[in-house]
């Protein structure tokens, strides 16, 4: 399972060479040959099994007791203990699990709204105005995209300690709000979504800069900002190393740190294994739902930028 595909380039060549007909440009175009459709279908089927298998296992496993995890076939449902597991999850350690989920919601929810707002402000400024320092600012944004959050985690931790913010909500929340990728997305969105003539017209009508921004800029950038919000949210929901360094108090931890801690402890505390599994499922569900509902934003949002970033 460690190498999910045999040499991908070969596979691609195989696929294409077995494809005597190609689809013409319009939707009414020629359909690909049967052989090609079979190969494409097999690739998609194998892909679907690979990408969904762990998620399916998670759903099945979350209905089992720790004993059943070891004694029943992994991909088959046994007696349903989902409700018991959820009850135990809720009661364990004074309901700490829900506290973690709430913390993650605060870190990612508040954080991503701030990230998106700040990105929209900066992106709008870069797209609409020509000002001194503009190219330096673009340079900073591009350059800092090459600096991953993880390599900064330890230095940020040192700084957070200096500021006396370690083991607080702020110590995790504030550093995560710098989001250069969001600024870049907002810049590209603003360039494409806001015609300069509209801005000029608003100014001629006597609207101030603030009014123009609020009534035109913000409104036209709303679809783009949902995309930024989505990626910002996922990014901070994923965050692990920084909160691991900054927080000692279990009541402040996000779900990633909490669950990883349970997983580690489950070696010595047997019942924790099934709690880790149920906890993982409960924590993943809301995000998956958000993804399904907001499909057009992660697809079209990135398409809008034309792969230019």
């Amino acid at each position: 399972m460690s190498a999910p595909a045999p040499a991908p380039v070969r596979t691609l060549a195989d696929v294409a060479s077995r494809r005597p007909h190609r689809r013409a440009v319009g939707p009414e175009g020629e359909r690909p040959s049967l052989a090609f459709r079979v190969v494409a279908g097999v690739i998609l089927l194998v892909g679907t099994i690979y990408f969904l298998m762990p998620v399916y296992w998670l759903v099945v496993a979350s209905t089992k007791t720790t004993t059943q995890l070891y004694s029943t076939p992994g991909f088959e449902f046994a007696q349903n203990h989902l409700w018991d597991n959820l009850t135990t999850l809720t009661q364990y350690d004074g309901g700490i699990f829900w506290r973690w989920l709430l913390n993650s919601g605060i870190y990612s929810g508040v954080g991503s709204i701030l990230m998106a707002a700040i990105s929209v402000l900066t992106g709008y400024a870069l797209a609409i105005y020509r000002f001194r320092g503009r190219s330096a600012l673009i340079g900073i944004v591009m350059g800092s995209m090459l600096v991953p959050q993880t390599v900064l985690a330890q230095p940020v931790y040192l700084l957070v300690v200096e500021l006396g913010l370690n083991n607080t909500y702020w110590g995790v929340l504030l550093p995560s709000i710098v989001y250069p990728f969001g600024v870049l997305l907002a810049f590209v969105f603003a360039q494409q979504a806001i015609p300069r003539e509209v801005i000029e017209a608003a100014r001629l009508d006597g609207a101030g800069e603030l009014r123009t921004f609020l009534s035109i800029g913000v409104r036209m950038m709303i679809p783009g900002s949902v995309t930024i919000l989505l990626f910002a949210f996922i990014g901070s929901w994923n965050s692990y190393l920084l909160p691991l360094l900054v927080l000692n108090d279990a009541r402040l931890m996000p779900i990633t740190v909490g669950l990883a801690g349970w997983n580690q402890a489950s070696i010595t505390i047997p019942g924790l294994q099934s709690l880790t599994v149920v906890g993982a499922m409960v924590s993943v569900l809301p995000i998956v739902l958000v993804f399904v509902v907001l499909q057009r934003y992660w697809k079209n949002g990135l398409a809008l930028s034309g792969g230019r970033f």
Partner: peptide, 13 residues
């Protein structure tokens, strides 16, 4: 959606 879905699962999970 299937190919993209794992991105929604935190790497820790």
């Amino acid at each position: 959606l299937v190919v993209f879905l794992p991105y929604a699962v935190p790497t820790v999970v």
